[in-house]
């Protein structure tokens, strides 16, 4: 479904991703962990199409299509969804109107008819219930004055509305209380099916108790330096990253 080959990207002269390789099949959940500054958000931004980052090599193929050639909105319409580590506040744009516009733009791309007011409202109500988000939040300006947790919940709500094929959750768990964490996880699990895939970026093994990954990868200095099953996350939780850094050093000097 998603195939990332030797992806290199950076900003101005600085190379941040130094050759990422990752294969994700439909139905899978991949967790990406790694120390601060290792390039996890950069990877998700590059996948979502943030223009700041310049791709200097490699390829990303989503369901047979070259993702890197597409504008951010095209990627979204093709089914890519990134839940932002830091969702943006946009005063004056109503959350509901924004989501309606997004849903209908995606539908238009897929050759579906735009949802009418009633259909949209019904869909929204169902999804609101699923992720337990409050109606009053949605009537406010997009993320404006939302608490950290409310912003994250709104990301998951948007994901539920857009039903992506590839969801990338960039530290959606940070700043969430236990209940919200469970909700976010429920939201993700509810959407999981054999046709879509999820990348979960997190620092904490805790989230992976709720969203059980098929694979865990460690991103360090712009490369995936270790991959394993969900037990790798437990090992990282117990031992930290030093042993991995050591391994990388040894491999480099060898």
């Amino acid at each position: 479904m998603l195939s990332i080959k030797n992806l290199k990207a950076g900003i101005e002269e600085k190379e941040i991703l130094k050759g990422i390789n990752l294969e994700i099949k439909a139905g899978e959940v991949h967790a990406i962990m790694g120390p601060n500054g290792s390039g996890k958000s950069t990877l998700s931004s590059v996948l979502a199409g943030r223009a700041e980052y310049e791709v200097s090599g490699g390829e990303v193929i989503l369901n047979g299509k070259n993702l890197l050639e597409m504008a951010p909105e095209e990627r979204a319409r093709e089914g890519v969804f990134m839940a932002f580590q830091y969702p943006v506040e946009i005063p004056g744009v109503s959350t509901t109107n924004f989501i309606k516009t997004a849903v209908n733009e995606v539908r238009k791309y897929r050759g579906q008819e735009a949802l009418g007011a009633v259909e949209f409202l019904n869909l929204m109500k169902a999804k609101m219930k699923q992720v337990e988000i409050d109606q009053t939040l949605l009537s406010r300006s997009l993320n404006e004055g939302f608490s950290g947790g409310e912003k994250k919940r709104n990301e998951i709500f948007q994901m539920a509305m857009l039903e992506p094929k590839l969801a990338i959750l960039d530290e959606t768990d940070s700043g969430l209380d236990i209940d919200a964490l469970r909700l976010v996880a429920n939201g993700v699990n509810a959407l999981r099916n054999k046709d879509n895939a999820t990348i979960v970026i997190t620092h904490y093994q805790r989230l992976l108790d709720y969203i059980v990954p098929d694979f865990v990868h460690v991103l360090y200095q712009g490369r995936i330096v270790k991959s394993g099953g969900k037990e790798l996350a437990m090992e990282l939780e117990a031992k930290g990253y030093d042993w991995i850094k050591e391994e990388v050093k040894e491999a480099e000097t060898a």
Partner: peptide, 12 residues
């Protein structure tokens, strides 16, 4: 803000 909106499928 523009990137945020576009990343949800809204054209530029």
């Amino acid at each position: 803000a523009l990137f945020y909106l576009r990343s949800r499928g809204i054209g530029v």
